[in-house]
Design a protein around this nucleic acid. Structure first.
Lengths: 393, 393
DNA sequence: CTGTTAGCGCTTTCAC
DNA sequence: GTGAAAGCGCTAACAG
């Protein structure tokens, strides 16, 4: 209630020129209670005065050039800083130095546990390397994504880590090879030639498929959100198809047969599930129901392979609604991503080393910021199979 | 790993300068591939030159003072900006203006869905009001919390939204009444007299208790993390006890009896569960098991009341491990917070209007930033009961 | 060892 | 209408 929608559509503010919010400004003085003029934060000059010295020495002290300060001066500075509760203004520092130690982190969807986990890795690395992550959450709105990318540019971050939805090419101009260093997480972006960190999708999909085949499932359905510009979705799906081909000795080489000696015929299908539209979800779910029913009729063992956690959740909810608490006995489910509730729901997953992914992303970025200028690299981490109740047999 | 602790205790800086990365610096020139000298971003001066005018006019244009510009000049400026792909440097702006439109958002734990949801509300409000949220994630580390608070100060954010773990008093000096405006979310902080936004804990606990009593449960156990400095935990627990008192016509007035006409005796206990320590978790869980077993023996109907989602998850995992998929039939569970998996797990919850909480927090802060100086306010939003399988009967 | 002098990129009087 | 000049808080040459 009373929240967003009906607000006066403010011009632009941060993102562009236009208005700067008329009003307020004049109301400056004393008004209600505690009218203490906000004790302006001390500046370096204040400290210099207080310590009876020049700004330079203060600056030196702040930057750890302690060797160049007499013990006495140093003590006075220390005291002055303490007395004034002085904190150097990072903005000013950044302005002067040309570097502000800010890293932009653009996340497509924080509601996806994957993002939060990667974030934690990013934070850890940032602390270790002395950066401050500026977290931007696109909330699945491609428009937000664009705005944030601009904003980051505007704040002159030294680098950006992008887990994109699908930036419209043009937005990329400022980042990448020419401009501010960038590293992609989980998915590549078409026009952009930058470092990339993520899951080894091919291996992960294969891992899942092999698990499923080994457990006797022979009707596999890969469920994934619309591919759009998300490379990982596409890669996972492709790997899903391929690894089935290999495993059952399809067009691939025969050596793979050892994996499934009793060469049987396996069905592989893909079902797109657009979580953004209820109608689409309904339709897809209905299709899936039909598929499952058909499989049962054919006496085939059907398993659903969710491309990621959000899809898995939707699927699990549906299966549970349809088959009850014991749904696992009616339809198998495996998913890439291992959210905390997977254990509770008893869903077999392929866990990504999210922390490492985030950590490495920052390391890559750091190297780039420090000047490294080689061809774009890619770090693909292996996933780990976590077997649970949803893939019995 | 390798993170903070062992750093050479340098004076101030971002938190710790010291090694500013020796090396690199000199390697400036041409190295590997694309050795294009990073095309320095255009500045306002560049634009002025390009447009054949002074910086002032550019600035005017940027700030929407279009009225003061001849159509011609305006057009030239527009073109120049376009040509140079110019973006004003927010840092510089902030430095000059004294306000940078940055809001600090200090979150205790992003892994808690609650935080993410509040965050979304905060973001929405920020966009509407023209702020840029600077998200800081303390990851349950009180030390991080302190560091971030300092950092925010250092970046001169205009205000902070704090969902604290327990800042050690001293850290609060800079924020609150005297210094930078702050608003607390979900929990108050002892020494701090600031605006506060959160759930109406008393009402929420009562809602849960009444639901439980109405369904015939008569042995209620409130499970909560160590109270420490987290006011909401304390409040919820207190309200839990009180509302049971009222409802069964304890010390409270008799009118409440209508809620539980057949005045029976109800047991109310509290169990602390420290999620940070495995040993503690084990012990608490064992105690709970004993309690449940005892209740069964006494033929009492026992229900667990989780103070928040993390606790609920831990509890549900345990119950499931103990009683199997059908655990809901052996022990009832209700929780404050309504994470997305609650539906899947079939857990009755009391949902918080998280989005609004975040939104309102920013509104409060905005008012404060704009100069309002009245006594601290508090906004307590009501929770909403969502009944699911975990509280049958 | 220490202070003086220029700015970083932008806004803002204050004249023209 | 438009621009020149003076800083915001800080760092980085250069002199002493």
């Amino acid at each position: 209630m009373s929240t967003g929608s009906a607000r006066p559509k403010t011009p632009v503010a941060l993102a562009a020129p236009g208005s700067d919010g008329a009003g307020s400004k004049g109301s400056g003085g004393s008004e209600g209670a505690t009218a203490f003029a906000p004790p302006r934060r001390a500046t370096i000059s204040d400290v210099a005065r207080e310590a009876g010295t020049g700004k330079t020495s203060i600056s030196r002290y702040l930057n750890g050039e302690l060797a160049a300060l007499s013990p006495d001066l140093r003590a006075r500075i220390e005291a002055a800083i303490e007395r004034l509760d002085y904190r150097p203004n990072q903005m000013a520092r950044g302005l002067k130095r040309g570097r502000n130690r800010l890293l932009g982190l653009l996340l497509a969807d924080l509601a996806n546990p994957y993002s939060v986990e990667v974030l934690q890795g990013v934070e850890a690395a940032c602390h270790a390397l002395g950066y401050m992550p500026l977290i931007c959450h696109a909330a699945n709105e491609i428009d937000m994504e664009r705005r944030y990318l601009q904003l980051l540019t505007t704040y002159r971050v030294e680098g950006v880590i992008v887990n994109a939805l699908g930036v419209p090419e043009s937005m990329l101009k400022p980042i990448g090879s020419g401009g501010i260093p960038a590293v992609l997480v989980d998915r590549t972006v078409d026009g952009l030639d930058a470092d990339m960190v993520g899951l080894d999708n091919a291996a992960a999909a294969r891992l899942g498929v092999q698990h499923l085949l080994a457990h006797g499932y022979d009707d596999l359905v890969f469920v994934v959100q619309p591919f759009e510009r998300v490379s990982s979705r596409r890669e996972r799906e492709a790997a899903f198809r391929e690894s089935i081909g290999e495993s059952i000795g399809g067009p691939a080489d025969a050596s793979a047969r050892t994996l499934a000696p009793h060469a049987r015929s396996v069905r592989a299908t893909t079902q797109v599930l657009d979580l953004r539209e209820d109608a689409s979800v309904e339709a897809a779910l209905a299709a899936l129901d039909a598929h499952i029913a058909d499989a049962a009729r054919r006496d085939a063992r059907c398993a659903l392979f969710a491309a990621n956690a959000p899809v898995a959740l939707r699927l699990a909810l549906h299966l549970k609604a349809k088959f009850g608490v014991q749904w696992q006995q009616h339809a198998a489910l495996i998913a890439i991503d291992d959210p905390e509730w997977a254990e509770l729901a008893g869903i077999t997953t392929i866990r990504q080393p999210t922390h490492e992914i985030g950590y490495r992303a920052v390391e890559f970025l750091h190297e780039r910021i420090e000047g490294m200028a080689l061809a774009a690299r890619a770090a693909e981490f292996p996933g780990e199979l976590v077997v649970r109740a949803s893939t019995p047999g």
